[in-house]
Nucleic acid binder design. Structure first.
Length: 590
DNA sequence: GAGAGTTGTCATACG
DNA sequence: CCCGTATGACAACTC
């Protein structure tokens, strides 16, 4: 299609005629008149421009999110990874976001003003965060405040596939925020509380915030049809602090959809809370409303877990580890775990501490006894926060069970993925743990013992260089044993590989040789057959020649010689004689 | 679930 | 004696 770009000022009658002519030419091809309409295309161009702007806004917002996320992280010097700042550091014990004022003090007008501020908030959100608007308006009726909804503020439009993708992306990012992931743990604690404080201990109770969030990813998904009603009914009353307090309780006793409902309630109540109401900068407020109220109690809950479970865990670890048998290696020693590198802190994980004093073979024991080790991991969600965190309560997070199954199926790969650093559940950690899972066992062991060389170096350096390198560092006996074992195993591994390669090559060579010999044999047999054939032919010819010659011979009487009585014989000099046949056997018999 | 192939490891022999 | 290498045997894992 031809491109005609004329500013309206120059669009004179001649141009319009030209457009008409062109349109008539192209109308057979299905072109519509609008194609040639400058204003129409101008509109399209503006629409595209708008879309672009929206996209840019989204990207900017994502960047801001990442920034705020990074601000909440600190660099783990040991691993070089970013881990969330400890809850104790990051989250000062601040008053609950839930207002403590009695509900009766809140007048209807105040509620309305709050509702208006909510609308303002929504307006600001809609302006700065259009796809959030989409989420709220299109996907979740929960977010439409039914009584105060102003259609001019919330524009319900048909879901755009692109915006839907953006929505999913946003939710995934939300889920990757450590604080939100902590919701999982919080919900577990809630579930624990449920089992201890209430009698409702069904599976439904195990629905977690995490689940809610995941469900929000879909038809906001998991929210039951009653959600809008629930929200509608409780929208005003939710603003009251006592109801906010009840949210937690309702969470404990609800099923998945109800939990989702509660999450929505909390989400919105956080928007409505006075704390958030005061500082309204749109984007920040949006972020804060997502992370703020959600990240406090969960992390407090984690602390409780830290204090209760992990201490026991550490004790368990120490006893368990000390019970591990000594190495199978002759070079291994029974150095005590106390003789460890100062690098290890008291909080380092079992894999960080325990291996000292245990050679690689013990590590293998651990590898091969996932039950003895991984069980311990699984009871400490905050200390060991690789993928195993989800093992803490499989029933709580059913969608993770497939992963757990896989993890138990190949414990070898999984155990090493337990770096033992104090990490928060964070997507990045998951990735890194998966990367670690690809490390060889020796690499994992070397890492666990803080050996400063790469396994590759340990194995491949020449003896002199290796000894020189070793002399530059001070190692305890466990480390020395491990390094020697790594070198021995590495060398042997390569040797075995070479051996197999040679064996295969030898087999291939022998097969090749065998085939060649078979070919040769075939060739020789063929040749022999040829020779035999020729020989037979020559014999026949010779025989006929003999008879011809013999028949031409006559005695003195002109009679032919009888072949039975005479034969022709040739001497070495080529002369031929007629020799009478001597019946030797008869003579001998006589 | 059985079976073949692959890989890592160990034990042992040898140079 | 130590070290590296070669190789058979075994176990774990994968397909």
């Amino acid at each position: 299609m031809m491109e005609i770009q004329l500013p309206p000022t120059q669009q004179n009658q001649q141009d319009i005629d030209l457009i008409d002519i062109l349109w008539r030419q192209d109308v057979d091809l299905g072109a519509r008149r609008e194609v040639f309409d400058y204003s129409h295309r101008q509109k399209e161009y503006e629409l595209e421009k708008k879309k672009k702007l929206e996209k840019e806004r989204q990207e900017q917002l994502q960047k801001e999110k990442e920034k705020s996320l990074l601000a909440r992280l600190q660099l783990d010097e040991e691993t070089g990874e970013f881990v969330p700042i400890q809850p104790a550091q990051q989250f000062e014990p601040e008053p609950s976001p839930v207002p403590t004022e009695p509900a009766q003090n809140t007048s209807i007008s105040e509620q309305e003003s709050e509702a208006l501020s909510f609308d303002e908030c929504m307006q600001l959100l809609a302006d700065t965060f259009p796809f959030v608007d989409d989420i709220k308006v299109e996907n979740s009726p929960v977010f439409v405040a039914p009584r105060q909804t102003d259609s001019s503020i919330l524009h319900p439009t048909m879901p755009d596939p692109n915006s839907m993708q953006d929505v999913e992306q946003v939710w995934q990012e939300l889920l990757s925020i450590p604080e939100l992931q902590c919701l999982n743990i919080q919900s577990e604690n809630m579930a624990d509380q449920t089992t201890t404080t209430s009698t409702a201990g069904t599976d439904n109770d195990n629905c977690s915030f995490f689940t809610s969030l995941v469900l929000m990813d879909k038809p906001v998904l998991g929210c039951s049809p009653q959600v809008p009603n629930t929200f509608e009914n409780s929208y005003h009353t939710l603003v009251q602090p006592e109801n906010l307090n009840q949210i937690g309780v309702s969470l404990l006793n609800t099923n998945v959809s109800q939990s989702c409902d509660s999450f929505c309630n909390i989400f919105y109540s956080s928007l409505l809370s006075p704390e958030n109401e005061n500082n309204i900068p749109p984007v920040n407020n949006a972020n804060h409303s997502l992370t703020g109220p959600l990240d406090e109690s969960p992390l407090k809950s984690i602390d409780i877990v830290d204090l209760s479970v992990c201490k026991g865990f550490e004790a368990d670890c120490s006893t368990d580890m000390s019970e591990f048998p000594d190495s199978d290696s002759a070079m291994s020693i029974d150095a005590s775990p106390n003789a460890t590198s100062p690098v290890n802190s008291a909080k380092s994980s079992m894999y960080g501490d325990a291996p000292f004093g245990y050679s690689d073979s013990e590590m293998e024991d651990m590898d091969s006894n996932p039950g003895s080790v991984q069980k311990n991991y699984s009871i400490c969600p905050t200390e060991f926060q690789g993928d195993a965190q989800y093992q803490t309560a499989p029933s709580l997070v059913p969608q993770k069970q497939t992963f757990n199954l896989q993890a138990t199926r190949s414990p070898r790969k999984e155990v090493p993925a337990s770096p033992g650093h104090n990490k928060a559940p964070f997507t990045k950690d998951k990735i890194s743990s998966r990367i670690e899972a690809r490390l060889t066992r020796d690499e994992q062991r070397a890492k666990a013992l803080n050996i400063p060389f790469s396994v590759e170096k340990i194995i491949n350096l020449p003896v002199d260089d290796f000894n020189e390198m070793m002399s530059k560092h001070q190692f305890n006996e466990a480390q020395l044993a491990l390094i020697r074992d790594i070198r021995r195993r590495g060398k042997n591994k390569v040797a075995a590989q070479n051996c197999r390669k040679r064996k295969l090559e030898s087999i291939v060579g022998l097969e090749h040789e065998l085939n060649q010999l078979k070919d040769d044999k075939e060739k020789l047999l063929k040749e022999k057959r040829e020779y035999d054939k020729n020989l037979r032919l020559i014999k026949q010819q010779l025989n006929s020649l003999y008879h011809d010659v013999f028949s031409m011979l006559c005695d003195e009487d002109g009679k032919p010689y009888s072949p039975s009585e005479y034969s022709l014989q040739q001497t070495s000099d080529g002369s031929v004689f007629l020799v009478p046949r001597v019946k030797k056997p008869e003579i001998r018999r006589e």
